[in-house]
């Protein structure tokens, strides 16, 4: 039964990702889009962890770790890119 609840939670998270996508498309500034994609990435990691527990596939967690790294790198890289000079950290 817990597995069904986890799967349901994963489905709700995907719906929330679709909702946040509105901000990524609409903008209006570039930073809004980066922020929305960062939230989407975090939710992706959580969805993967939920699926890993619900479907009992332990190696999904390794993929989730890679996603978490990639998501952080992407947000910092695009923020850095939108600033002409100077740091963002």
């Amino acid at each position: 039964m817990v597995n069904d609840i986890l799967l349901g939670a994963a489905a709700v998270f995907v719906v929330l990702v679709i909702v946040v996508l509105y901000r990524a498309v609409r903008g209006p500034t570039m930073q809004d889009r980066v922020l929305a994609v960062n939230v989407i990435g975090t939710n992706t990691v959580v969805i993967l962890a939920l699926l890993s527990a619900a479907l009992d596939v332990p190696y999904f967690l390794d993929i989730a770790l890679v996603y978490a790294l990639l998501n952080f790198l992407m947000a910092v890289a695009i923020s850095k890119f939108t600033v002409e000079r100077g740091g963002v950290m």
Partner: peptide
Amino acid sequence: LLVFIFITNPTAAHAVARAAHEQDI
């Protein structure tokens, strides 16, 4: 994963907000 997200997520948001500030938004 939890520890990693707790560290990186606010850092990324900070980077984004600071980029917005540098762009005079």
